[in-house]
Design a protein around this nucleic acid. Structure first.
Length: 853
RNA sequence: GCGGGUAUGGCGGAAUUGGUAGACGCGCUGGUUUUAGGUACCAGUUCUUUACGGAGUGGGGGUUCGAUUCCCUCUACCCGCACCA
């Protein structure tokens, strides 16, 4: 018996697919399209198991849809700009480009060894001028349409990476990449007007019915829509006023102070003459924005000495404080404090001994003074003059009406989403194609001068931006007046690169950034697959870009990804030596007693928790070694088989071995029984043995259920069904009946098709043995014969008082009376009923009989 | 604090959405072969009981002939956001 040689077979089919350009996609309006995309990788050097899981899932979808007759686009590229390349340049003295392209070459080789049905002719790398030059062209169009602007603003400054971060890139006050505490700094920044699209981005979520609910909710929260009012409070004894935003205009009569942000324009004026304010503002800027810092920080403020006139209470004056809890970038950076109905305001009021007024009754009659807990719910108004007795909802409307009448305020919708700052003070990114001219100001580069190419000769020995240090690169003539000017040395946030790559993939070598003809056909992406970690950042930015591209006329679509699937992580057990050092999985073996020990020293090993694979805990497995040991097919099979795809899965050697065993078993069964099957193309005989009929049913049921599971991306269930089918196939013995060899061939062919998307190499090999026409990758998906998937007899459960007492075999759709009769004839049923009178018998056709006594 | 999710054997997980709970895989137990094996095959494997039977999907309650599934309530864990006015 020959063993299946995975290495040989896998490379054989990989080169055949490549030679035949099997997976090259071409737009063809006469055919239905399907665009499958997995989030493209950052070329860090090697693929990891998470990539294997991600790309295997995408590949199964791609191959399955292809077999279903779709014209499938399944491209791959590289999210290739970013800091690690600069770090490598500094640490290892290699040029970022050299480092990146070497990593790409290695990872491309690794991906190819997985046998993915990718169209490599469409490969792109964002660090290639052919890509980023087009990104610059698109950017110029964005400038022209007013989608980008420049403004001096407070930014999140990462002191380790020496660059600006977007709000989305700051978690717990720390940079998403460096982990350093982020500082506030004021810089000239390029901004995308994403906030203008808040409502559209929010509404669009409603159309994304093939996105996980979770991701839509996260985006919804991020956009943070709230309904409220803007109110102008006039500053006492002056012509100036202070505009605030509130979601609780109903509590206006409970106002007892005003608070403005440390960065509020009014604060800026006041601090000049008031050292106390100046000192407080400085303190606010020193304070971190981390979770701990915020939790520990008291609600603090400093009295400006100014007051506001209450808009609805004649003669009432409200002191204005600069307060540390007021954010400049939410609402108007100013608020009125209502201690009775807001915890934060109450804390502040207690600290500075300010009035606490209850204006909303709790329940019907709870009107007691507020003590330590504010009442934040709805209720009937009180202490509020003309509002008294109204519900808080009605009071909101009434207050807004009054304020509008007086020209003091209006109903407003506020969003938390802020504009996206894209400037980064880095070398390895897409240069922002603008020039700063003393005479003309900020001038976009001329389209014919694109791409603005990164200079090769840069050094990384100084902190800061190498582009800025470069002796000549930034010195150019103004495109407008031709006088000496300076090129912008900031580069774009790498999230810009990934905000439109899905569109570029449709025609990656086109002169235009986006080929409308091609995107009209291919977009939107039908199935996008990637990690949940991009639920906000990348996906929201891409949705913004899609809208912006519609405005520039580059594309027509509304949403970039009509289907989104977020796959879970791959985890692994952790191992430590007794000294506490982390150990790699391959350093651990089990000794004769079954205890885990170190492979070399024999020392006992402590098995720790199952955690996300990470280099620091060494609980990683190398895909290259896995593929080498088990073969790509087995690796693919295992990452799909055990856990539902959206959940975390644990990588275990035993599981991979199981996959490997199945592969061997299938191969063996077909090679050993190939001489028993009917000759290819034999006409279907009419005479089948009983066993053959059973097999045919199993085959067609499997075809139906696997199809169904693949449609739903329930890969683990699809695999379970295949295992069941394999068992039936293995049990089948060809008899003398004429139809049996034919049935065996049919079953084998169906099996090979069903396994195909998951184990493409093995199934091509088997398809060839079965003398299948052309490549399996090109052949259509098996259609289940529905008449074979329904049995003519069914097993029905018989319950007495809801407890199972027997099962009966009856004809499908058997008459209820007859079923009842058979059920009641069962000894076990009669025993259970005993002497009790039968009150009712419920018969659910083909499922269950329940005798109620 | 706000929002969301999850809970089923020793483990990963199934269950056509109210109809035989535990499919399938891993592990384990016993057996049969064998070319050494971490090979292959067969049987078994929720708990309890000698058996008949009984119990059982995080806990408690409810609706129903019937609940893993629907409702109420509690508990535990996980995730996202968070000084958002």
């Amino acid at each position: 018996m020959s063993r299946y040689n995975a290495k040989e077979v896998e490379t054989k089919w990989q080169s055949i697919w490549e030679d035949k350009k099997t997976f090259e996609a071409h737009a063809d309006v006469t055919r239905p399209k399907y665009y499958v995309l997995e989030m493209f990788p950052y070329p860090s050097g090697n693929i990891h198991i998470g990539h294997v899981r991600n790309y295997t899932m995408g590949d199964v979808v791609a191959r399955y849809k292809r077999a279903q007759g779709f014209n499938v686009l399944h491209p791959m590229g590289w999210d290739a700009f970013g800091l690690p390349a600069e770090n490598a340049a500094r640490d290892k003295n290699v040029h970022p480009a050299e480092w990146t392209f070497a990593n790409i070459a290695n990872m491309r080789r690794e991906l190819k060894s997985m046998g993915l049905s990718l169209d490599w002719s469409k490969e792109l790398a964002t660090c290639h001028p052919g890509y980023y030059g087009k990104q610059q062209a698109l950017f110029l169009e964005f400038i022209e349409k007013g989608l980008v602007y420049r403004k001096e603003s407070w930014v999140n400054w990462d002191p380790v990476d020496m660059t600006v971060l977007a709000n989305e890139q700051v978690t717990d006050g720390r940079g998403w990449r460096s982990g350093a505490l982020v500082e506030k700094k004021k810089l000239d920044q390029w901004m995308f007007k994403i906030a203008d699209f808040s409502e559209e981005l929010l509404k669009g979520l409603g159309t994304l019915d093939r996105w996980p609910e979770r991701v839509r909710l996260m985006q919804e929260n991020w956009i943070g829509k709230s309904q409220g009012a803007k109110v102008n409070f006039s500053i006492s004894d002056s012509d100036d006023s202070l505009e605030i935003y509130t979601t609780r205009p109903d509590t206006l009569f409970g106002a007892s102070f005003m608070a403005i942000s440390a960065d509020h324009p009014l604060t800026h004026i006041l601090l000049k003459d008031n050292p106390a304010i100046a000192e407080f503002v400085a303190e606010c800027h020193r304070m971190g924005t981390s979770e701990e810092a915020i939790e520990k920080a008291d609600k603090k403020g400093v009295d400006t000495g100014l007051t506001c006139d209450h808009p609805l209470i004649e003669g009432k004056k409200l002191p204005i404080y600069v307060a540390n809890f007021v954010l400049m970038d939410y609402g108007t950076g100013a608020l009125f404090g209502c201690p009775g109905h807001d915890q934060r305001d109450l804390d502040f009021a207690r600290k500075y001994d300010l009035e606490v007024i209850r204006v909303v009754a709790e329940g019907d009659d709870e009107q007691s003074p507020i003590e330590n807990v504010p009442y934040t719910g709805p209720g009937l108004m009180m202490n509020s003059e003309y509002l008294d007795g109204l519900t808080s909802d009605d009071a909101k409307t009434a207050v807004i009406e009054r304020l509008e009448g007086q020209g003091l305020g209006s109903a407003t919708t506020n969003y938390r989403l802020r504009d996206w700052g894209l400037s980064r003070q880095r070398y390895w990114g897409c240069p922002i194609p603008v020039i700063h001219c003393d005479t003309c100001g900020t001038v976009p580069e001329k389209a014919e001068n694109l791409p603005v190419i990164l200079p090769d000769d840069v050094t990384f020995d100084k902190p800061g931006n190498p582009l800025d240090h470069h002796p000549t690169w930034k010195h150019v003539n103004c495109p407008s007046c031709n006088k000496p000017a300076t090129r912008e040395t900031d580069t774009m946030d790498t999230f810009v690169d990934s905000s439109w790559y899905f569109a570029r993939f449709c025609a990656p070598r086109n002169d235009l950034p986006i080929s409308k003809e091609d995107t009209d056909y291919w977009l939107p992406v039908d199935q996008y697959i990637g990690g949940i970690e991009h639920a906000i950042l990348h996906l929201l930015y891409s949705r913004f870009y899609t809208r912006a591209m519609k405005i520039t006329g580059a594309s027509e679509i509304d949403e970039p990804f009509s289907g989104l699937f977020t796959q879970g992580m791959v985890t692994h057990e952790t191992y430590r030596s007794e000294s506490g050092a982390w150990l790699l999985p391959e350093e651990v073996i089990h000794n004769d007693n079954g205890d885990p020990v170190h492979i070399e020293t024999g020392e006992p090993v402590i098995i720790g928790g199952i955690e996300k694979m990470s280099k620091s805990k060494k609980n990683v497995v190398d895909p290259g070694e896995i593929i080498d040991k088990f073969g790509a097919d087995a690796a693919r099979w295992f990452v799909l088989s055990d856990s539902p795809p959206d959940r975390d899965m644990e990588w275990t050697d035993a599981g991979a071995t199981g996959a490997w065993r199945f592969k061997q078993r299938l191969f063996r069964f077909i090679t050993e029984n190939i001489d028993k099957i009917a000759i290819k193309g034999t006409e279907k005989p009419s005479d089948f043995s009983k066993g053959a009929l059973v097999l045919r049913k199993e085959a067609h049921k499997a075809a139906l259920q696997v199809t169904d599971n693949l449609e739903k991306l329930h890969f683990n269930n699809a695999i379970a069904r295949i295992y069941e089918f394999m068992k039936a196939l293995g049990d089948f013995k060809v008899s003398d009946t004429a139809g049996d060899p034919w049935a065996l061939r049919e079953a084998m062919e169906i099996m090979v098709h069903l396994v195909g998307p998951m184990m493409p190499h093995l199934s091509e090999e088997l398809w060839e043995m079965l003398e299948g026409e052309g490549l399996l990758a090109d052949s259509p998906w098996p259609q289940a014969d529905i008449s074979l998937t329904v049995d003519d007899t069914v097993t029905m459960a018989v319950q007495v008082k809801g407890k199972l007492r027997a099962t009966i075999e009856v004809a499908k759709d058997e008459d209820a009376k007859k079923v009842e009769e058979i059920a009641l004839a069962q000894i076990s049923v009669q025993n259970a009923i005993g002497d009790n009178p039968i009150r009712k018998i419920i018969v659910v056709p083909n499922r269950i009989v329940n005798v109620v006594i």
